[in-house]
Design a protein around this nucleic acid. Structure first.
Length: 641
DNA sequence: TCTTCTGAATTTTTT
DNA sequence: ATTCAGAAGA
């Protein structure tokens, strides 16, 4: 039996007519508007299998996804449907593909191939650095916007939202007077990136676009190489990414993009769901296919989600329907206080568990990472295992960044920011000294036997050891894990001195060494750490797959659970106070709520305390989120607790 | 001039 | 938990 014929019959049966249509279009631009739970992933997976089955070479297919994990999952599902050749399909994020192209063709845009990638924290640091080193210095350093604000403005501006002044006027009008000064900071920041051979996230896209635009032979070659392009979560792409799609497909227009404008929740990162609305303009002749049959949720849940999204002002009109089994009415609960809310959620989880629902089939979703702090305490006290997604990331931990910075100066000695970071660990070396030393090293190298560096080793104890370590590891030929172990050994005293919980942090560093095991190239490893941060080390309970899921709504995208409990569904939490300033931001909060509620298969529980304790104002009354006020009351059961 | 210490304030979402 | 501002200390 050949797998081909067996597959052919099965997959046509597996799909509904709309899905089958999308999957089997031979080529050209295709836009699939896929409602929540409408089998979007399945459609992409089957599309890949269908293309392979029709003789398309796997290496000529490119699958662009939101995370690398998503593309890996899709390709392994495609491999199950078709055969192992599906794993030869190129998959990844826009940033990783940009990275791939830029490493290969760095010379064409005037970069060295060993450039390092800055993550967001690096960008903040670099902006602070630029701010501090401006010449002439800032006139009014006090009222000046924080680097995270500057980073946001910069990214929006680069992403096509206009000049810095335009963005300020629109989003931060109170900083408009600083426009010129911000431009000066950004100019220094850019200069700094160049001298240190660094690229930030946006650079990976901007430079890839520039590479493709300015070099016709590269554009032709790349576009000929990837004959079929599939893009998932297209509603969360930004202008640069749309431009990249346009360039990558310049030779053939064989692009299928899949997404749901109602689930666009990343505008804070520059995502613009106008992309999905304007795709047909970018690719004339686009075939539009709507998937509206929902396979996930009960009709009772869909009634609620449909009316939530009905109030949205723009987008492709759609109304999800389901032929699935009936279920209970979604619940609304208003506990008296946050403590009571936590107690209620605990009780809810215990009851479900007693009724045979597995803990990992229950998710508690919330707007922001810290909203679940009280609940986490309650779960811990009652020994209910849980895994938390979203919020703080493994890589953002200081100790991880410290160790990675040692690796980064080995890979890229010009990386002054990383130098500064590791120099500042040493006693008596603060910001200024570190900056001076880093500049000296970046310019003269680390091996100078005379000059300021040698003088400094006499003045600062510890510097000699650090330089010795870096020299040793620069010449070191063994596996990366050995390097990490060597650095960890050196770093241990610093860790111990600084943190009471150093044993836990030490375990993180061991975990990091383990991650390196699959890497042969240091450059590759560091790129991946910036582009695709590893997940938090699995605790025992998470590894066994038996813990309640606690997640931000953003991190819950694309997932589903038997029961979803929406925590803090209250004014002041969702929508967040920050979003009230602009109608667009407010609409995004609505979509966030839509994403959260459409994750539920069987039960949806909405909870919001009646009061909130504010340090300044004391106990304040809390209203249910305004978006739920739009839903007819008979769609809910109101439970007292 | 630079570093380190202390107490106080703050926290959206993330490739 | 981290970051920030201000002040003392080297």
């Amino acid at each position: 039996m050949t797998p081909h014929t067996a597959v052919k019959h099965r997959y046509l049966e597996d799909l509904n007519p709309r899905q089958a249509e999308a999957v089997s279009i031979p080529g050209g631009p295709i836009l699939v508007i896929a409602g929540a739970g409408s089998g979007k992933t399945r459609t992409v997976v089957y599309r890949v299998a269908w293309l392979l089955e029709h003789g398309i070479d796997p290496s000529s297919i490119l699958l662009l996804t939101f995370t690398r994990k998503a593309s890996q999952e899709m390709l392994s599902r495609a491999a199950e449907l078709f055969d192992a050749r599906a794993s030869l399909v190129a998959g990844g994020t826009f940033h990783s593909i940009g990275n791939l192209l830029l490493r290969k063709y760095s010379a064409l845009i005037g970069y060295e191939p060993g450039f390092a990638i800055m993550d967001q924290a690096d960008t903040f640091d670099a902006l602070d650095h630029a701010k501090a080193n401006l010449n002439p210095p800032l006139e009014d350093a006090k009222g000046f916007p924080k680097s995270r604000t500057i980073a946001e403005v910069m990214s929006r501006s680069v992403g096509g939202a206009g000049s810095v002044a335009d963005v300020l006027e629109k989003r931060h009008p109170h900083f408009l007077g600083y426009a010129r000064e911000i431009e000066r900071v950004l100019a220094l920041y850019r200069e700094h990136k160049r001298t240190c051979n660094l690229m930030d996230y946006d650079d990976l896209l901007v430079n890839a676009i520039r590479l493709l635009e300015e070099n016709e032979h590269v554009r032709t070659k790349i576009s000929d190489q990837w004959q079929h392009i599939l893009v998932d979560e297209y509603q969360d792409t930004n202008r640069l990414q749309a431009q990249m799609v346009r360039l990558l497909a310049s030779q053939h227009d064989n692009v299928m993009v899949v997404g749901d404008d109602s689930q666009s929740i990343y505008s804070f990162r520059g995502a613009d769901f106008a992309n999905i609305l304007e795709f047909p303009d970018l690719f004339p002749g686009t075939r539009i296919i709507k998937l509206e049959e929902n396979y996930r949720s009960t009709p009772q849940i869909l009634k609620v989600t449909n009316s939530l999204i009905q109030g949205a002002t723009i987008g492709y009109p759609k109304r999800l329907f389901s032929q699935g089994a009936e279920g209970p009415l979604p619940l609304v609960v208003r506990p008296a206080t946050e403590r009571d809310q936590s107690r209620f959620v605990l009780k809810c989880i215990e009851e479900l568990y007693e009724h045979g629902v597995k803990l990992n089939e229950i998710a508690v979703l919330f707007r922001a990472g810290f909203h679940s702090f009280d609940l986490e305490g309650e779960l811990t006290r009652n020994q209910v295992p849980y895994v938390k997604y979203g919020g703080f990331k493994f890589l953002e931990s200081i100790h991880i960044k410290d160790v990675l910075s040692h690796l980064r100066v080995i890979q890229n000695p010009k990386d002054q920011l990383s130098w500064m970071r590791i120099l500042k660990l040493l006693p008596r070396i603060g910001l200024k000294t570190a900056a001076n030393l880093a500049a000296t090293i970046a310019e003269n190298g680390i091996d100078a036997t005379t000059g300021p560096l040698t003088a400094a080793t006499k003045k600062y104890s510890g510097l000699k050891d650090l330089l010795g370590l870096i020299r040793e590891l620069t010449d070191h030929r063994g596996p990366i894990s050995e390097k990490v172990e060597r650095i960890t050994e050196y770093y241990y005293p610093f860790l111990k001195e600084r943190y009471d919980n150093y044993p836990k942090r030490m375990r993180d560093l061991d975990h990091l060494a383990n991650i390196t095991a699959s890497y042969k190239s240091l450059n590759r490893f560091l790129s991946d750490m910036a582009l695709e941060p590893p997940e938090q080390e699995d605790t025992g309970m998470a590894a066994s797959g038996n813990g309640v899921v606690l997640s931000t709504i953003h991190s819950a995208k694309g997932l589903e659970w038997h029961t979803v409990i929406l925590l803090w569904a209250a004014e002041g939490k969702i929508p967040t106070p920050q979003s009230l300033l602009s109608p667009e931001d407010l609409e995004e909060e609505r979509r966030l709520l839509y994403v959260a509620t459409t994750r539920a298969k069987h039960n949806l529980v909405v909870t919001a305390p009646q009061t909130f304790f504010d340090r300044r104002m004391g106990v304040v009354p809390v209203r249910l989120s305004r978006f739920f006020e739009e839903v007819p009351t008979e769609y809910f059961r109101y439970l007292r607790f």
